[in-house]
Structures are given as C-alpha cells and as structure tokens.
Design a protein around this nucleic acid. Structure first.
Lengths: 224, 224
DNA sequence: CGCCGAGTTGACCATGTTCAAGGTGGGTGG
DNA sequence: CCACCCACCTTGAACATGGTCAACTCGGCG
C-alpha cells in the first residue's frame, strides 16, 4: 500500500492512493489520510461521498445535542469500516478519538437498492444489519441504571472484540468512555477503581486494563 | 376484509384470511388474529415465518435479561408493520401491550439479498433503515440522565406520531412506559404529575394525556 | 359493597452528579 | 538532567435525583 499521507481535511485529495484492504478491485482505490486527536472526519447531515476504513487509531461516531451534551454511538478500531451509509447523508458525526490513519473510499453508489455489485451490496447490507443490532444493544445497556453494569459491559465488549489477550489498550479518554455509557468521567473512574480494588481488573496505567476475572465482570453486566 | 378471528397462538392458522392493507396482491394473504393483553406473539430467536401488521391495539417489542428486568425497544400501533426481519430469526420478543388484532403475513423470502419482488425488497430495506435510526435515537434518549428529558421525549414522540390532535390515548401501562424509558413506574408517574402541576399537560384519566404546552416539552427534551 | 389491578404519593435510602482539590505521567525547555 | 507545565485522571465531600418500600387512591367489575 502506498503510504503517502495527505493531512486530513474533510474532502480527501488524491495525494496518496491505497488499495482496499479486503478485496481485489471491487472498491475504487482509497486515499490514506491522517487525522489528529479530536479532529472531525465528517459531520452529521453531510452528503456521504466517502466511506472509510480505519488503519490505526480509534474513530468515534457521535451526536451532539442542543445543550452541548454528546452521546457516542460506537468506536471503530483498525480494520473496521465506517460511513458505509445506506442513505445519501451521514447520520452521525465521525471524529478521531485518537490520532489515526484512515483510508477513504469513494462512494460508488447512490441509492442502496440500486447497488449493482453483489459484494458491495452485501457489505452495505451487512453494515446496516450490524448497526441495528449494535444500536439496540447499546440502548439496552444505556437503559440500565447501575454504573457497574455499564462499565463491566463496556469492558466485556472490548475483550470480546480485541481477542488479543487479557490486557486491553484503551486508546480513548475517560470522557469518551463516559459519553459512550451515559455517565460522567468521575463515575467511570470511580467504577474502574472499584473493579481494581475487587481484583476484577488491574490498571498498570490509566489507559491499560488487564482483565483479571472475566467471569465476574460478565455476571455484573447481567446480559441475556 | 374478512374479519373472522382466530384466537392467537404463536402459529397463525388459516381460520381467517385478510387482504394486506397497503398493497394489491404482492403480499401473500394474511390471517387476522386476536391477542390478549400481555400475550406473546413471538419470542426472540424463533424462526421468522411471519411478519405482521397491527390492526388495533398496541404491540411492544422487548428483550428480557437474566435478572428478570425487561427493556422495551419500540411500540407498534394500528397500521404499523413489525417482524419484517432481514435475517431468519426474530431478534426481539413481540407481545401484546393491550388487547389487539393483528394480521399475520407469511414470509415469502428467506434471505434479504435474495428477495426478488422489488416492492417487498424496498419494504424490508426501509424497515431495516428505520430500525437503525430509531434504535440509535432510543439509545440517545436512554443515555440522558434526567427523567424529565426522557418522559418529555416520550410524549413529544407520541404527539408527532399520532398527529391526531392534542389529546393522546396511552393504551399502555405505566410499567410499559417505564421499561421503554429505563425508569420505574413511580418515577414515570411522578414526572407526569410534575408536568401536570406545571400545566405542560393535563391528565383527565391516567391513560389520557392532553398536551397543553408542546413548546416547553420539546425544550425539556433538548434534542437537536 | 368489596375486591382487585393500576396508578399515585410520601419517606427514606442508594447511587450518580457536581464541584473542588490533588495526583500522575509525558513532553518541553532551561 | 531537572523543573515545570499541561492534559488527563483520581479522589473526596456535599448535593440532587431516581430507586425502593409502603400506604393510599381511584375506577371498574363481580
């Protein structure tokens, strides 16, 4: 992959080209871009000219409310695709939750039902299906009252997703976690400390969480 | 429409036939069925052999958790379709939130991408798209901490949906509202009383809500 | 009339938020 | 190399809010 970088603005330029990571030539060539921490990738309501794949770092999808409050819908990490909208406009804002590198692909379809390429169609459809399930599960966990349930759910979710041993690298801030779980940073911090005190986890540093007792964490979140 | 009733069991019989309400002959003929309050229509995980349209009453889609707790995802009222799953199994449980009459249509497709009928395809696709947006919005409102925001959001949502004047007929219990908003019945009740005291609403009976000051309710829920 | 389910209200308690202070670690510049 | 700074995180104390438990009301129905 050509690793020429184009510093991130809202509209990708052709400063660098990149082959898509998961297919032969089905996608149009992508542009590798660099975004700084907290930089906006696209904004809710914009026309969806591109979709993206994360190379490194973490991207957050969120919505801002009239009172300044922010709710995060999901985080995307390396290899994950986002912005593959079935409709013509982005319905959430995408921001870099850490410094990150992202490949932008040009959107080659206008309406979902008009997509001719079978594989692309499946990808968009799968993306949409996944979004439903995820959004629902997210609603279910946000509906829970207790902070321990929310935080343990978040950790278990992360462990499952990473399947890279027991030590998680949180590449996001406490504020991001709080906005994802509908809590405050203080409550997230306190709850994590509490878990550490109970030896459910260990925190070598604030951004590293070692899972010591997955069973108990899974029970705390009382899912299914 | 033939109004012969078949008392509701999980599997519709052919005791009565009904023309679909929104198309000529595109759907297979439907069976009109009657469900009692709290009766299960289908359960999470079951194979999706039918999809449904509400004739009268209210249906709730929900998920049960290991601690007995229940989270309601959405309510469906007259004319609304539910259970039009893109996948082969229902992912939520459907129950009658009040006594209701429902038409069941046989599922004429197996996989989403294999649907040949263009109109049916569009319907399933639209159903899925809507579900994403709704589930996300629901997550966003559940993420909010304050009960006033949740309850006002619920009322505003209902008003918009009904567009039948200022007096809402809640055909669901306080428990259902509570499980939808991630609150307790007491908090829902208190918040409604509070709104009534502030003249934002009036409650002739517990199940009737007259919206007196929509503007203020909309501001309370602080949605963009 | 009395029962029963649904809804309301009150008092108390657990939990999260808020506000404020203090810690920690990585980076920069002297 | 150290001191300093800054952003981020943690911790504490007071407070606000929703949950819990219990008593009471209301309306419908036998």
């Amino acid at each position: 992959m050509t690793e020429t970088l184009s510093r991130g603005f809202a509209t990708p330029t052709h400063a660098g080209l990149a082959r898509p990571l998961n297919g032969p030539g089905r996608h149009s060539a992508g542009v590798l871009k660099q975004y700084d921490h907290d930089q906006e990738i696209y904004s809710e309501g914009e026309e969806a000219h591109y979709y993206y794949k994360v190379v490194s770092g973490v991207v957050r999808m969120c919505k801002y409310f009239s009172d300044g409050h922010r709710q995060i819908d999901i985080f995307y990490g390396p290899e994950e695709i986002f912005g593959l909208e079935p409709l013509n406009n982005y319905c959430l804002t995408a921001e870099a939750a850490s410094d990150c590198r992202i490949v932008a692909y040009r959107r080659t379809y206008s309406e979902f039902s008009q997509i001719e390429d079978a594989e692309l169609f499946d990808e968009v459809a799968t993306f949409a299906m996944d979004s439903i399930g995820r959004a629902r599960n997210h609603a279910f966990i946000l509906g829970r009252s207790k902070a321990t349930e929310k935080v343990s759910h978040f950790l278990v979710e992360l462990v499952r997703k990473s399947h890279a041993g027991n030590t998680l690298q949180l590449n996001i801030s406490r504020q991001d976690i709080a906005d994802y779980l509908g809590l405050t940073i203080e409550t997230v911090s306190r709850t994590l400390s509490q878990f550490a005190a109970k030896k459910l986890i260990a925190m070598p540093t604030a951004r590293q969480v070692e899972i010591k007792n997955l069973k108990s964490l899974e029970q705390l979140r009382c899912w299914t």
